[in-house]
Every structure is written in structure tokens, then in C-alpha cells.
Design a protein around this nucleic acid. Structure first.
Length: 424
RNA sequence: GCGAGCUUAGCUCAGUUGGGAGAGCAUCAGAUUGUGGCUCUGAGGGUCACGGGUUCGAGCCCCGUAGCUCGCCCCA
């Protein structure tokens, strides 16, 4: 037996209704906020991600699906989408005609990691980017969009964590202070954190190690190193969130894993997800466009949601949706009646009536069983009597009642029942 | 990259000092020969992950391999 590769999975028919529900919600809310969809290729030149994500991040160092194509170019399956979107904006010159862009995206991403609960090698994200505004209003609009989706999906017991990591100069100053602080305790830090001290000291703040936590408790606070711009941006953001009655938890140690963030960062968490409790997150990335070599700075802010993690949450909340049933099953008695069956099915389908019938030469009884299993509303029965008299027997499966009509009349009844059935 | 646990029928699992491979659900077929759901009867389906070893004998003990799951790192 050949299995799907590690960390990938099939989305089976029984799961599709929930996916549709989530996708429909994403479309609707994006639309409500005036965001337009953008679709980019699922692979890019490796350079796109090297520039944006940060060369010291784990994503770049050990998680990318990178290969040389037949032309010798280094190609990478996208591990996130913001970089692709920025590349597409620049390449297509989308900022020439708009000073601001409201974009959303949805699709599969790839990261080479050990799979575990809520973590796959191919997974899906929805994301939205508000590009062209440095104002806190934009950050808040993004958070409002995220929250509206989360609420409409019916996710319970989630938390919104908020922090700011300031602008570049503030962060540089803070980073220096952090390094000199942690160096004093370098020998007491966990191995992971000693590594972080070299590569990305900010991430020590996010450690779960108990020894680290003890040391982190008294470390310098980032807010003390903010310059005027950073402080004002952060305060204004919090103020606007309060204005919108958004509850959040200020989390000074919230540091996200991608290097391109500035100022606002935030994360949505759910307790049911276990070790990976974050199902969405984002923040501001004012420096990403210049990283790409764009001629001027473009302020931007955005977020992404992990679809599989959202589905885990919804499943834990027993959220299920019915799989749509065909309306009509045509059962018949003798193989030679098949021409009548095809003819009737053709007509009904032309009139948008979902119709199916047996293609295994099953007994009438077995056909009824199958009809029942599919949950159809009506079974049309063609037996000897119906064929000989040009009639049609319609059985209402719910009421368990059946009536024989002249053929034309019976068909009319089916057509008329469609509108009444449409709300499921 | 590191650590732990699991792997018996399509699915969920039971298998008690190592000696008969089982249940429920699902599937299929019957229960006055045109008709589903409930009930009853019956049937099919397993090299007990794979490969070695110990033993008269292994699903059960030992070693190895693979797969899955969970955790660390990191992230959605």
C-alpha cells in the first residue's frame, strides 16, 4: 500500500462540509471589510523567502521544501504567503494605481517539520494584508477582521494576545540591553536559549523552560526602550482596540518567529490545541518592502489563520454540518428499464435536480437501501406497472408514503418540490 | 534535528503465567418473489506492521526496521 507522505493528509468527503463552511465565512468577512483576493503560485524562487523570513529563523534553516528545478534554479514550496504577496505587488506594480491595498489569500503552505497535533507538512492558511498605511487604524482594522472571522466561525474560549516590538531603532537598543542582561546568566540558561542568545535574543522571552522563566522575570522591559514613535503607535493601537470593545491580553514576551515584524504583533490562542495553541497571528511589517529592494518604504500590516487548527477547534466543539443529499433516487426493476432511467435523470438534472440511480444492477430492495443511505427525499420507482402504463411512482422517504401518477404529472411534482427543498 | 508511546478484521478495540484469533460497528445476503429506516438470522473479510531471534510452541518475550501519534525546537 502506498500512503500519503508524512505530514500530508487527504481531506475526505465527510470533512468537506466543514471546510466549505470555513471557506465561505472567510470569503464573506473579507468582502465585508473590502478586501480583494489574490492568488500567487505555490512555489517561488527560494530567494523570495530568504529575503523576507529571516536567515536565522527555523523556517529558513530547516523547514523549507527547496529543490533545484531542471533549469538549475533554486525553487521553494511556499512556507508562508506574505512574502509571495509582497513579491506579487512589486512585480505587478499594484501600488502604482493604489496608495493602499486590501488583500486576502487562501491556500496550501509547506514546511518540513515533524508532524504533531495541529502541525502538518502541507497545511492551509487564510491571511489578509493591509498595505500602504503606517497608522494604528490599519492594525486595528486587521485585528477586527480577524476577530470577526473567529467569531463567525463560532470559536469559543479563545484569547487575543497583543504586544509591540517597536520600530527598528527601538528594537535594536532593546536587543543590546537584552544581550548584556542574558549574558550575565548565560550559563544558567537552557541550551535552547543559549543558542537563541546568539541568533535571536528576543525569542528567549518566549521560552517555556522553567530556569529561563526565572531569569526572564527580571529582564529589561521592551516598553522602556521605545522611542516616541513606537510608544505612540502602541498606545494608539490599544486605545482604538478599547474603542471597539476588543478584549486583549497584553503580553510583553510575545515575540513572533518571523524577522520582518515591526511594532504591533498579535496572536489568537485556543486551549484545546495542546502544544500548538496558536491558531492565528500577525502584525506589522514596515520594512519588508525595502528588504525586497522596493524603491520606497511601504508600511503594511496583516495576519494569517491556520485552517487545520481552526478545524480542530470546531471539531472539539462538536461542530458538524450535514453533507448535502441528492434530492432524487431512481429505482428500477429490470435492466431493460435503464433507458427510461437515463432519460428521466437527464431531464431532472437539466432542471437542476440532483439525481442518482444504481449502476450495479442491484435488487430493488438494495436500491431502496442505497437511496436511504444517501438520504434522498424522493425515490422514483419504475417497475413493470409504471413502464407499461407510462406512470411514475414517487415515494417520499421521510413520510414513507408513495403515490403513482401519470408520468408528466409526477415529474411536475418533483420539479415543484425543488424550491421547497432548497433551504437544506 | 532530539525524546516518548503506539501498530490485532474496512473502523473502534478485547485478547488474562506464551498453546483455540475474537467482539461491536460497517459491508453483503436472507426473514410470504416489485420497496429503505427498527428487529432477527447468516456470510464474506485478518501472513495479529515488517524482518530476525528465544522456545516443543509467540499476537503475547528479546533485537532491528518502517509507519503513526504525542512532546521539544519552531510555528498556523
Amino acid at each position: 500500500m502506498i500512503n500519503a507522505v508524512r505530514g500530508t493528509k487527504d481531506i475526505l468527503p465527510s470533512e468537506i462540509p466543514l471546510w466549505y463552511f470555513v471557506e465561505k465565512t472567510l470569503h464573506n468577512v473579507s468582502n465585508l471589510f473590502g478586501f480583494k483576493e489574490i492568488r500567487t503560485p505555490i512555489f517561488e524562487r527560494t530567494e523570495v523567502f530568504l529575503r523576507s523570513i529571516g536567515s536565522e529563523t527555523d523556517i529558513v534553516n530547516k523547514e523549507m521544501y527547496t529543490f533545484l528545478d531542471r533549469g538549475g534554479d533554486s525553487i521553494t514550496l511556499r512556507p508562508e504567503m506574505t512574502a509571495s504577496v509582497v513579491r506579487a505587488i512589486i512585480q505587478n506594480n499594484l501600488l502604482a494605481e493604489n496608495s493602499i491595498l486590501r488583500l486576502w489569500y487562501y491556500g496550501p503552505l509547506f514546511r518540513y517539520e515533524r508532524p504533531q497535533k495541529g502541525r502538518l507538512r502541507q497545511f492551509h492558511q487564510y491571511g489578509a494584508e493591509l498595505i500602504g498605511s503606517p497608522e494604528p487604524e490599519a492594525d486595528v482594522e486587521i485585528i477586527l477582521l480577524a476577530k470577526e472571522i473567529v467569531e463567525r466561525l463560532g470559536i469559543l474560549n479563545y484569547k487575543l494576545l497583543l504586544n509591540s516590538i517597536g520600530n527598528r531603532t527601538s528594537r535594536q537598543r532593546y536587543k543590546q540591553e537584552l544581550i548584556s542582561y542574558f549574558e550575565k546568566y548565560a550559563n544558567s540558561l537552557s541550551n535552547d536559549s543559549q543558542e537563541r542568545l546568539r541568533k535571536n535574543p528576543l525569542r528567549i522571552l518566549d521560552s517555556k523552560d522553567e530556569r529561563d522563566l526565572e531569569i526572564i522575570k527580571n529582564c529589561p522591559k521592551i516598553y522602556d526602550y521605545f522611542d516616541k514613535e513606537s510608544l505612540e503607535h502602541y498606545n494608539k493601537t490599544k486605545e482604538l482596540l478599547a474603542l471597539n470593545h476588543i478584549e486583549f491580553q497584553e503580553t510583553p514576551h510575545l515575540v513572533r518567529g518571523l524577522d520582518y515584524y515591526t511594532h504591533t504583533v498579535f496572536e489568537f490562542q485556543s486551549p484545546i490545541l495542546g502544544a500548538q495553541d496558536s491558531f492565528g497571528g500577525g502584525g506589522r511589517y514596515n520594512e519588508l518592502f525595502t528588504e525586497f529592494g522596493f524603491k520606497k518604504e511601504v508600511a503594511a500590516t496583516g495576519f494569517a489563520l491556520g485552517i487545520e487548527r481552526i478545524l480542530l477547534i470546531l471539531e472539539s466543539q462538536q461542530k458538524t454540518l450535514p453533507n448535502g443529499s441528492p434530492l432524487v433516487y431512481i429505482a428500477f426493476n429490470k435492466p431493460e428499464f435503464i433507458s427510461k432511467v437515463f432519460e428521466t435523470a437527464y431531464f431532472l438534472r437539466k432542471h437542476d435536480i440532483p439525481t442518482l440511480f444504481d449502476v450495479q444492477k442491484k435488487s430493488l430492495k438494495a436500491q431502496m437501501k442505497e437511496a436511504n443511505k444517501y438520504g434522498v427525499k424522493f425515490v422514483i420507482i419504475f417497475g413493470d406497472d409504471e413502464i407499461n402504463n407510462n406512470t411514475i411512482t414517487i415515494k417520499d422517504m421521510k413520510k414513507s408514503e408513495q403515490t403513482t401518477y401519470p408520468f408528466e404529472k409526477g415529474i411536475e411534482i418533483i420539479l415543484n418540490s425543488k424550491s421547497a427543498n432548497e433551504d437544506n
